[in-house]
Simulated scan of single mutants.
Amino acid sequence: MVTATDCWASFAPYLANVVCCPQFDATLMILLGQYSKSSGVLNLNTTNANHCLSDFEKILESQCANSNLRTICSIHPANLTEASCPVVDVNKFESIVDSSKLLAACGKLDHVNECCHQVCQNAILDAANKIAMNGTSSTLPVNSTVDDCKNIVFRWLANKLDPSSANGVLRGLSNCKVNKVCPLVFPEMKNLTAECGHTRSNQTSCCKAVESYVAHLQEQSFITNLQALNCAASLGMRLQKANVTQNVYDLCHINLKDFSLQESGCLLPSLPSDVTYDKTSGIGFICDLNDSIEAPWPSASFVPAVPAIKV
């Protein structure tokens, strides 16, 4: 099972953001979508959700997946229910939503263009809004209800598409979201700003501080090439706000790959990818072949798409 390999025991925490949790979530959506073909509904009740999630975890664990995926991926039995979405019946869903329009937008996802043009994402949002209002023209629903209804839309798509196609769509949509942010937590940077914060700072001591700081970032997780751009921009802006005016990335030869896990640096591709396993070479994954690129120092007017997580 792809999900078990993507969430391999020792690697799951480091691949959680980009590979493991998106695949774990997609598989649950597909299971519910396929189940709805016989049940006629796009949800589980609380009791069945508990049993389903528990059984799924046991199956994955028996195939060497991490045993703590609920915590790593913040998945709960409630994620398999309808939550606050008022429409779960497949027939009712299709009486409210323009099914052909939704399938046309999402049936074959263009992984490159979708994140920019959001054709499928807009169609999903439109469908979620309609079922959140239960097919009426009443007051617009709250955001949490729309989000819950998006999950129902995902499951409906998983009902209509074959599992492989559904997985491609769900992983592609997830990557659009994942690539917008820097998932790294930036530790305290007092020492870094002290060594690099004045114009005539000693290059050797400044670069030692930079390398030490980056080494802490490399202990966190694998990230994609686009996430690395956001991380470089976010860290650069934090340093600039702390009066580090010189381009320390250029000064200290910091590349984008330096923001990702492991000493050699490996940036994952921005498109969805999976972990592989064979008995000879063990666990493997694709690294971006263009990852030896100098980290760009943000200009004074640059604003990253999403700021890094605050600490």
Rank of each mutant, 00 (worst) to 15 (best):
C176P: 06
V248C: 04
L15N: 04
L157W: 14
M189Y: 13
A233G: 08
A4Q: 01
I286G: 08
D148N: 13
G168I: 09
W297R: 04
S221W: 07
I75Q: 13
P269I: 05
D162G: 08
V181T: 13
N129G: 05
V88R: 11
V146F: 06
S164G: 13
E263P: 07
T145M: 15
V178Q: 01
A215I: 11
K160L: 00
V88M: 10
C176K: 02
S67T: 10
L192C: 07
G236H: 05
S212Q: 14
L28S: 09
L15D: 00
S205F: 12
I286F: 11
K92M: 14
V153M: 12
N45F: 14
V303M: 02
I286H: 12
L256I: 02
V178L: 04
S201K: 05
G236E: 03
I283T: 05
L125A: 15
D110E: 04
E94I: 00
F93Y: 10
F285G: 03
K92N: 13
R238L: 11
Q240T: 04
A78C: 10
G168R: 13
L80W: 10
S74K: 14
V169L: 15
K58H: 14
N202G: 02
C252H: 01
K150G: 11
T280F: 12
A105K: 01
K241L: 08
C287V: 03
S292N: 15
P304N: 01
G197P: 12
Q220R: 04
C106V: 03
